[in-house]
Structure formats: structure tokens, C-alpha cells
Computed example of a mutant assay.
Amino acid sequence: MKKWILLAILALAAWNYHLNQQAAQKGEERGLVKEIVQGVQGAVFKRDPQYRCDGRKYCAQMRSQDEALFFLTNCPETQLDDNDNGIPCEEDFPIE
């Protein structure tokens, strides 16, 4: 069993080295570890860094439909979509 774990670690290290070499040729910074870290950071920083989950969860606390959509998609326990159609705060920010 220990041999398989060691082989798996060596395979991951080789794959990480391969990704780093490919990225270096393109002038990018990349690798398996960086990919994992970016995945863990989540969509909050990738999509729109101007919005952050800060505890707000009601439509009256939102300033725009875009902000409400961000909170609905990325933040837990929001109460922004009364009819569960995926469009937050329809009454506060009507779509024209």
C-alpha cells in the first residue's frame, strides 16, 4: 500500500513539473498546486472582486440587480429569490 501511495505522489509531482514547464514556455505561472489553490479560492475572487459575501442576505440591502445576483449565486443563506426562478430581487430591480 505504501508503494502505491509513493507512486501516486511521484506521479503528481511529475505532472506538476510538466504543467510548470509548459507554462514557463508560454511565460505563464501555473502548475498543479496553483490550480488547486485557485479552485479552493472559489468564484468570489474570480468573477467579480468588487462584491464580497459580507453577511447581507435581503433585497433591501442590495444596491443593484448585479450585486443581488452575485450574492444569490455565491453567498450562503440569502433570501433574494422568493419564487426560485434564479432572478433575485425582481420587485426591487424590475427588468425592463
Rank of each mutant, 00 (worst) to 15 (best):
F70E: 07
A23I: 00
A11W: 04
Q21Y: 00
N85L: 08
Q79I: 11
Q61H: 10
G86N: 05
A14D: 01
D82V: 13
Y17A: 12
A68T: 07
L32F: 10
Q50D: 10
R52P: 02
W4D: 04
M62E: 06
M62I: 07
V37N: 09
R56K: 12
P76F: 15
D81H: 04
K57F: 14
L69I: 09
K2V: 04
Y58M: 09
G55C: 04
Y17V: 06
M62S: 08
I9V: 01
F70S: 00
G55Q: 09
L6G: 00
W4V: 05
K34D: 04
P94E: 05
R56T: 08
G39T: 08
D84H: 07
Q38I: 11
D48L: 03
C75V: 02
V37F: 11
A60M: 08
E96F: 12
A14L: 02
W15H: 11
I36E: 00
N85T: 06
Q38G: 12
A8T: 01
T78R: 10
K34I: 01
P49E: 10
R63E: 13
G39Q: 09
N16G: 04
M62L: 06
D54I: 12
L6C: 03
R30A: 15
Q79E: 14
W4S: 05
L72T: 07
T73F: 11
T73M: 14
Q25H: 13
Q65T: 05
I87V: 15
I36V: 15
L7S: 03
F93Y: 08
M1H: 10
D81L: 08
E96D: 12
E28C: 01
P88T: 07
D66W: 03
E96C: 06
K2E: 00
R47F: 13
K3W: 02
G39F: 06
T78L: 06
E67Y: 06
Q79F: 12
G42N: 14
K46R: 14
C75F: 07
V40M: 06
W4M: 04
Q21V: 03
L69R: 15
T73S: 15
G31H: 08
G42Y: 13
Q50C: 00
A13K: 00
G42S: 13
D54T: 13
D48C: 12
D82S: 13
Q21C: 05
A8M: 00
V33K: 09
A23Y: 06
Y17F: 09
